[in-house]
Design a protein around this nucleic acid. Structure first.
Length: 238
DNA sequence: AACCAGGACGTGA
DNA sequence: TCACGTCATGGT
């Protein structure tokens, strides 16, 4: 079991390359050398986020992308950037109706605006240095932050090696028969964390690669047997 | 033109 | 605990 998850990781990495998650719109804005087509992705740069506002941007992105495609989140983030440069203290002062209008393209704007407001209060409370890294339970206690959002914030914003599970992860690994149909979030999370070296880069890339792979082979309604990993498993090659 | 997207919450059993 | 409805815009 152990080496299988590692083998799948190697397979995905070789096939798709380094993913450069989490995308950051302000990093691109501030670096003319970064190509527009990169859309905020930054392969092989694991130093990001490099400042307080970038940490905050990732957290907002994690909320905005709940059950929503990233292209729509990008629009919402750019709207927010135009509003107040994605600065937490300015977001605090912003009218919630203005926030709603800005994030409308990302859907669920009533809920998400409220979530952003509540989270921003918490985030400002962490202080500018961000030396206090939130715990998972702290994040989970915030209204609007569930397990995937909390883990995404920890892994990509706060650089804590904790594995992110999402609907795609469930689909792939039930299809590959690694987990049962009704496995819980924490069961799946544990499966990965117990069978992978506890390494920030691996955790970051693995989740990103799972999303990339799933967009190609695990869309709803598609035949999961077309998945090349599934094919290799059939032939007992992985 | 239905159907889905990098979920979370509230409710009732 | 668990299953199900709700939230909402914009892609294919």
């Amino acid at each position: 079991m152990n080496s299988r998850l590692v083998n799948i990781y190697r397979f995905l990495l070789e096939r798709y390359g380094k993913q450069g998650w989490w995308p950051l719109i302000q990093h691109r804005r501030q670096n003319p050398l970064v190509k527009e087509s990169d859309r905020g992705y930054h392969p092989e740069n694991y130093d990001l986020p490099s400042c307080h506002d970038e940490i905050y941007e990732i957290c907002l992105g994690a909320i905005l992308t709940q059950n929503t495609g990233w292209t729509q989140v990008e629009v919402a983030l750019n709207n927010l950037f135009q509003l107040n440069n994605l600065k937490p203290d300015l977001m605090q002062k912003a009218e919630i109706e203005v926030i709603k209008e800005a994030i409308k393209p990302a859907g669920y704007f009533n809920q998400k605006a409220k979530k952003i407001k509540i989270f921003t209060e918490y985030f400002v409370g962490l202080g500018l240095g961000c030396d206090k890294i939130p715990t998972r339970d702290e994040l989970l206690s915030i209204w609007g932050v569930g397990p995937e959002t909390a883990d995404s914030m920890l892994l990509y914003a706060f650089k804590v090696p904790t594995f992110v599970v999402d609907a795609y992860t469930m689909r792939i690994f039930t299809n590959l028969n690694f987990i049962r149909e009704n496995a819980t979030y924490n069961e799946v999370k544990r499966l990965f964390e117990e069978n992978l070296p506890k390494d920030l880069v691996i955790y970051q890339e693995y989740h990103a690669l799972i999303v990339e792979h799933s967009k190609r082979f695990y869309r709803r309604g598609s035949d999961y047997r077309n998945c090349p990993i599934y094919q290799k498993r059939i032939k007992d090659e992985i």
